[in-house]
Computed example of a mutant assay.
Amino acid sequence: MSVHLNHTIVPARDRDETAAFLVDLLGLEPAPVYGPFRVVSLGNDVSLDVVQAGESIPAQHYAFLVSEEEFDQIWGRIKERGLAYWADPFHREPGRINTNDGGRGLYWSDPNGHNLEIITVPYGGF
């Protein structure tokens, strides 16, 4: 049996705002409610289940593998909305993208301080 990630829980101060932010920037379908979650479905049958978690949210990192075209679209939406972005996970290279492993990547933050990343080539170039 091969093991696949099915879903992960994303804690949020505002479940609906966070799900809408992800859906909007990543260009995804609206996130339906399932129990206490807003389910943000990704293209590889994995979902981010956004849950209301109160004010104290530990920052997490979520990386998304996207096509070159999707990268341009997402980067465009980030710039249109005036969001800060960085070429590195420590936010030391503002307003830049990286070209690691022959692809492109960038980082930005969601409303909860989660570090989001898009890359066009997986780490190691695989």
Rank of each mutant, 00 (worst) to 15 (best):
I57M: 08
I57C: 09
P58Y: 11
P58N: 12
P58R: 14
P58S: 13
A59Q: 12
A59D: 08
Q60H: 12
H61T: 12
Y62V: 15
Y62F: 15
Y62T: 13
Y62C: 13
Y62D: 11
A63R: 06
A63G: 15
F64W: 14
V66Y: 05
V66I: 13
V66W: 08
V66G: 02
S67T: 15
S67E: 03
S67I: 02
S67C: 07
E68L: 10
E68W: 04
E68I: 05
E68N: 14
E69N: 11
E70M: 14
E70Q: 15
E70F: 07
F71V: 01
F71A: 02
D72T: 08
D72R: 07
Q73W: 06
Q73P: 00
Q73N: 09
Q73H: 10
I74A: 03
W75L: 15
W75V: 09
G76A: 05
G76M: 07
G76D: 07
R77E: 07
K79C: 10
K79A: 08
K79I: 11
E80R: 12
E80I: 01
E80F: 01
R81M: 01
R81A: 08
R81N: 10
G82S: 02
G82H: 01
G82P: 02
L83M: 06
L83Q: 00
L83P: 03
L83D: 00
A84K: 11
A84Q: 13
W86E: 04
W86A: 10
A87S: 06
A87I: 03
A87D: 04
A87G: 03
A87F: 05
D88R: 04
D88Y: 05
D88E: 06
D88V: 07
P89Q: 05
P89E: 08
H91N: 05
H91G: 00
R92C: 05
R92K: 10
R92I: 04
R92N: 07
R92S: 11
E93R: 14
E93Q: 13
